[in-house]
Design a protein around this nucleic acid. Structure first.
Length: 129
DNA sequence: AATGAGCGC
């Protein structure tokens, strides 16, 4: 089920490839939620407060821009049980937090290790024999 | 400076 390697080609200059483990079915469950649509001013504490009532929250992480320090407007919430994550998603998806409606889905996991690009030098000779 | 779909180090 989590077998499809999906790649996304980001905007040209960096030509970054990002691989994610995506489920074959569009609806799946996870203990980890992706929470988008966050107001710039939402921090991890308030996000925790908003989600901890649905179950035991292991981790709350908001993604901040590396050098501007500003929130990128999304984050992740980890529950111990995916039932809790699921009900939190159902209850909070579309619901506004600090004025902005949350966009919640189950988190995609980055493919472990990421893509391995094997250097292939076409003019390398095999001198082993 | 303002930005508003997306999936982190």
């Amino acid at each position: 089920m989590f077998l499809i390697r999906r790649f996304k080609l980001a905007n040209h200059p960096t030509l970054q490839l990002r691989y994610y483990c995506t489920p074959t079915s569009s609806s799946f469950t996870s203990k980890k939620l992706f929470v988008g649509g966050l107001s710039w001013s939402v921090d991890e504490k308030s996000l925790n407060d908003a989600f901890s009532s649905f179950g035991e929250v292991v981790e709350v992480k908001i993604i901040y821009d590396k050098d501007s320090g500003r929130s990128r407007g999304f984050g992740f919430v980890n529950f111990t049980k995916e039932d809790d994550a699921s009900s939190a998603k159902d209850a909070m998806d579309g619901k506004a937090l600090l004025g902005r409606p949350l966009r919640i889905s189950f988190a995609l996991e980055k493919v472990r290790g990421g893509p391995v690009v094997v250097p292939r030098l076409s003019n390398v000779r095999d001198d082993s024999s």
